[in-house]
Design a protein around this nucleic acid. Structure first.
Length: 259
DNA sequence: ATGGCCGGCGCAGCCGGA
């Protein structure tokens, strides 16, 4: 089965591209981020018509995540545990039965955290720690489990065309990278890094000709539990999508699993 | 020419993003 994660930067602006992409690529499960829509305004029927079940956790104007799937989920969980006062829509998890297997997939949109001197950066750090605590609990289930989404973390300097430009940015700041590494160290496999040691960018800014200069960063990740990583067949970044008309600034990232 | 954007909201121009 094929699973993709994609920050679409607005479902209203990206619906046509999303529909064409679904028709052409036929993913089994899709993790979307930045739908920028409340649930009531989400265009469910345009996607359900293509044979997908749709679950959203949205809010007005900003953030928002969704899960699209060929099969109906057995269970859906919204919100990352650990802070009941957190109103930002950044997390949704689904459990799916695929023949005899059960697979658990989360779509997450980790806070950007800029500027570092604002309260946005401690919010980012606390969100990563909440994610780590949540993930530690999930790993005890010993299931194929995929944590997919826009992490807003550049893990290492090879994940940026110009790493020195990012030194004081919340995407590359050392304490954020360390917190991300603590999550990985629970036992996750970074799917793209595992199959390809070369640079594989997933985001190119709309500004300053970043795409034409390939001035990209890798911030969209699929982290696999040991039970998922045992079944990993391939992982890849769909770079050409950045060249489409009305492209998102992020491109889809894919894994194929032997399930 | 050494700078250059985009989406949402809502109908001007600001906020947020990365």
């Amino acid at each position: 089965m094929k699973i993709a994660t994609w920050n679409i930067n607005g479902i209203k602006a990206r619906l046509n591209n999303l529909v064409v992409w679904l028709e052409q690529n036929q993913p089994d499960i899709v993790c979307l981020q930045e739908i920028k829509s409340c649930d009531e305004q989400f265009p469910y029927s345009s996607i359900e018509t293509l044979g997908y079940h749709v679950e959203t956790h949205g809010q007005k104007s900003f953030n928002g995540v969704a899960l699209l799937s060929r099969v109906t989920p057995d269970e859906i969980n919204r919100r990352l545990p650990g802070d009941i006062s957190d109103e930002q829509a950044r997390f949704i998890e689904g459990v799916y039965s695929i023949e005899k297997a059960v697979i658990r997939v989360a779509s997450l949109y980790l806070p950007n955290g800029n500027p570092i001197v604002s309260d946005k950066y401690p919010y980012k750090l606390s969100w990563i720690r909440r994610l780590r605590d949540f993930a530690a609990d999930r790993l005890c289930l010993e299931e194929p489990f995929i944590l997919a989404g826009d992490y807003n973390i550049i893990p290492t300097k090879i994940d940026a065309k110009n790493p020195t430009e990012w030194m004081e940015d919340a995407l590359f700041f050392l304490s954020a990278r360390k917190a991300f590494q603590e999550l990985i160290n629970l036992g996750f496999t970074d799917a793209i890094r595992a199959v390809n040691p070369e640079a594989q960018y997933t985001f190119w800014s709309y500004q300053a000709g970043a795409w034409s200069k390939n001035n990209g960063i890798r911030i969209d990740h699929l982290l696999l539990s040991p039970e998922a990583s045992d079944r990993l067949i391939q992982a890849f970044v769909q770079k050409k999508m950045r060249g489409w008309e009305k492209a998102s600034d992020h491109v889809p990232v894919w894994i194929e699993l032997d399930i």
